[in-house]
């Protein structure tokens, strides 16, 4: 799985950026087991970039291929496959309000009939095992309204992972976590990456992004810069990138804001 390209972006600019953008296009490739982070100042359209890369927003130019298929011309079957293989979650991804935690985790997998390959009981066991790894304290019998935001988010992650995606795209994933929960969740993500999952992150936790990422994309309202290693971004001579990294290193995570 390693080195097999899952997402390929060529000369892409998101169509729905909420400001006039005349900067560079994005050329980027995400392979199996790789971690890519998108970082940058607030309101720099990072959410638009990640959604466009995942095929959830249109691009104004360029092309995006997911598992070799051009996403501008997807059949209904390919659309479903694409959405299963590239799981996108934002910080407030909703659960089914009428279903408890466990049913929420199982529902999409049952819809995609993963229980045909794996008996339903085995699917349930797999879901429970996944939830145990993410957080053993989640009460799975409760409806989402009675759960904390952190628990709801973890259930959403388990729901996405049960579909066995190749890429987990997380937009601002740590916003509902306290320090302990964040550390625990980051360990879980690292374990998943070690198993071959690719991660695409939008995060304000810059030290974490620099630590875990193989590739880093810096986006602001004027331009986008792509770095193929941690060292490349630390050694770069782009003023706005250096200023952003220096500023965030001097600030605590409490200064994070929305993308």
């Amino acid at each position: 799985m390693q080195n097999q390209s899952i997402i390929q972006c060529e000369q892409v600019i998101p169509q729905q950026l909420p400001f006039d953008y005349s900067g560079d296009t994005l050329n980027f490739e995400l392979s199996g087991g790789e971690v890519t982070s998108i970082i940058g100042p607030n309101y720099s359209g990072k959410g638009n970039w990640i959604r466009t890369i995942c095929g959830l927003e249109d691009q104004s130019c360029g092309s995006i291929h997911i598992k070799g298929i051009d996403i501008s011309d997807l059949s209904a079957k390919d659309w479903a496959m694409t959405r299963m293989k590239v799981a996108y979650l934002h910080e407030d991804t909703a659960l089914l309000s009428a279903a408890n935690g466990l049913i929420n985790v199982l529902a999409p997998s049952l819809y995609h009939q993963l229980d045909k390959n794996l008996k339903k009981q085995l699917l349930v066991e797999k879901a429970l095992e996944l939830l145990e790894q993410i957080d053993p304290l989640i009460n799975l019998d409760d409806l989402p309204a009675y759960l904390t935001k952190a628990h709801r988010y973890k259930i959403a992650v388990a729901r996405a992972l049960l579909l066995e995606p190749d890429v987990l795209a997380l937009n601002n994933p740590f916003s509902h976590f306290n320090h302990e929960e964040k550390t625990q969740f980051q360990s879980f993500l690292k374990a998943q990456v070690n198993k071959g999952l690719s991660l695409l992150l939008v995060t304000h936790d810059i030290p974490y992004a620099l630590d875990i990422s193989d590739k880093i994309i810096f986006a602001d309202q004027k331009n986008i810069h792509y770095f193929d290693s941690r060292q490349a971004i630390l050694n770069c001579d782009i003023a706005e990138v250096n200023e952003f990294i220096n500023n965030t290193e001097n600030q605590g995570p409490e200064n994070r804001a929305r993308t």
Partner: peptide
Amino acid sequence: ALENMGVN
């Protein structure tokens, strides 16, 4: 959220 997971 359902549509994002390929649910029609």
